[in-house]
Amino acid sequence: METVNWPAISSTLDCLVRPVLGGPDLKLEIWCVSALSSCLSVCGHIFITTSVVTNRNLLLFCVLLLCFRPGSEEAAERCHQPLFISVLPILREGDVVLTAQPELTSPWVNAWRLSLYPCETQRLVQLDSTDDGCRRQTVKVLMAVCRLNPALRALEAAPLTNLVLHLSDSECDWSQNSLHARFQQCIAELIGYLEQGVLQSYFKPAVNLLSNLSEDQVDQIGFIHIAHITFLQEGGPAGRRRLWLCLCRPSRC
């Protein structure tokens, strides 16, 4: 933040780029000027990761800004607001990935967080490649369901990925035809983990991936999934359609 020539970057991108000082994270503030004003249709907050922060990396901002399409009058009004970009420092050494995320490592100021995401995704790819399985597809479906249902958004990608990894140790059939069965099984397994309040990390068993959920969130998520299991077990094909409707469009149930 202190060594980069921000005026030079600003002149190169034809917009004002400057660091946001005083916060625990590394954040940049961008004000669109001149020709880019007509291109910037959405202003808000963008999150990117980078291993090395250099002037060359910062040219990525130009691509980010120019990717915005011309928008409506409302979008034109919003272009007078700043665009914020958070920079996530990453250290890589072989398969080890460390990230600087103070919100997760607090109160340890100088601590780095060990990211197991590369190991988890690599393991899923490896397992699917051996039997042409649907493990990654199951994770995507679970993530889509949780993203579309406000009550389930507290469940992030990590616990869902580890849920499938744990199930892979005991379940052998991950063919495409068994996707609906594995999805139902994942929900049943998740209910069990929620009742215990513990879902161990696949590669670091000492880590509880449900520790960030409050008791109310655990109860709410568990109640919703119990209702979904009932739909699946008693409703047949119609129940599965009803389940999907309730998962993705809860306001219509």
Results as ranks from 00 to 15, higher is better:
residue 114 L to T: 13
residue 192 G to K: 07
residue 56 R to K: 09
residue 165 L to Y: 03
residue 29 E to Y: 05
residue 232 L to I: 10
residue 137 Q to Y: 04
residue 6 W to D: 04
residue 252 R to D: 06
residue 63 V to N: 11
residue 2 E to K: 01
residue 103 E to M: 14
residue 131 D to S: 11
residue 65 L to T: 12
residue 10 S to M: 04
residue 205 P to F: 06
residue 1 M to W: 00
residue 172 C to K: 09
residue 31 W to K: 02
residue 18 R to N: 02
residue 188 A to E: 02
residue 3 T to N: 06
residue 221 I to D: 04
residue 205 P to G: 03
residue 128 D to C: 14
residue 75 A to H: 12
residue 151 A to N: 07
residue 220 Q to W: 00
residue 88 L to Y: 07
residue 178 S to A: 15
residue 210 L to C: 09
residue 171 E to V: 15
residue 109 V to H: 13
residue 180 H to R: 04
residue 22 G to A: 03
residue 125 V to C: 10
residue 243 L to I: 08
residue 108 W to P: 02
residue 185 Q to F: 02
residue 142 L to M: 13
residue 90 I to C: 08
residue 151 A to T: 14
residue 106 S to C: 08
residue 185 Q to P: 01
residue 97 V to T: 13
residue 83 L to P: 00
residue 36 L to N: 07
residue 88 L to N: 10
residue 27 K to P: 04
residue 245 L to T: 14
residue 216 D to N: 04
residue 193 Y to R: 15
residue 241 R to D: 06
residue 131 D to E: 05
residue 119 C to T: 11
residue 186 C to D: 00
residue 58 L to I: 07
residue 48 I to V: 15
residue 207 V to D: 11
residue 40 L to R: 10
residue 109 V to W: 14
residue 28 L to N: 07
residue 5 N to F: 05
residue 45 H to L: 04
residue 91 L to R: 14
residue 204 K to T: 09
residue 8 A to M: 13
residue 100 A to Y: 12
residue 153 R to L: 02
residue 104 L to P: 10
residue 193 Y to Q: 13
residue 224 I to C: 07
residue 20 V to T: 07
residue 195 E to I: 00
residue 50 T to H: 14
residue 134 C to Y: 00
residue 108 W to Y: 13
residue 120 E to I: 06
residue 162 N to T: 14
residue 117 Y to R: 02
residue 239 G to L: 09
residue 112 W to L: 15
residue 129 S to R: 15
residue 25 D to R: 12
residue 78 R to S: 09
residue 144 A to E: 06
residue 56 R to V: 08
residue 1 M to C: 01
residue 235 G to P: 14
residue 103 E to F: 15
residue 30 I to N: 01
residue 226 I to R: 13
residue 207 V to G: 01
residue 7 P to W: 00
residue 116 L to S: 00
residue 106 S to K: 02
residue 144 A to G: 15
residue 90 I to Y: 01
residue 191 I to N: 08
residue 26 L to I: 11
residue 142 L to N: 13
residue 102 P to M: 04
residue 68 F to K: 04
residue 93 E to A: 11
residue 181 A to D: 08
residue 205 P to L: 02
residue 249 R to V: 06
residue 100 A to I: 12
residue 171 E to Q: 10
residue 1 M to D: 01
residue 60 L to M: 10
residue 181 A to L: 12
residue 235 G to L: 12
residue 173 D to E: 08
residue 72 S to T: 14
residue 199 L to W: 14
residue 39 C to P: 00
residue 175 S to E: 04
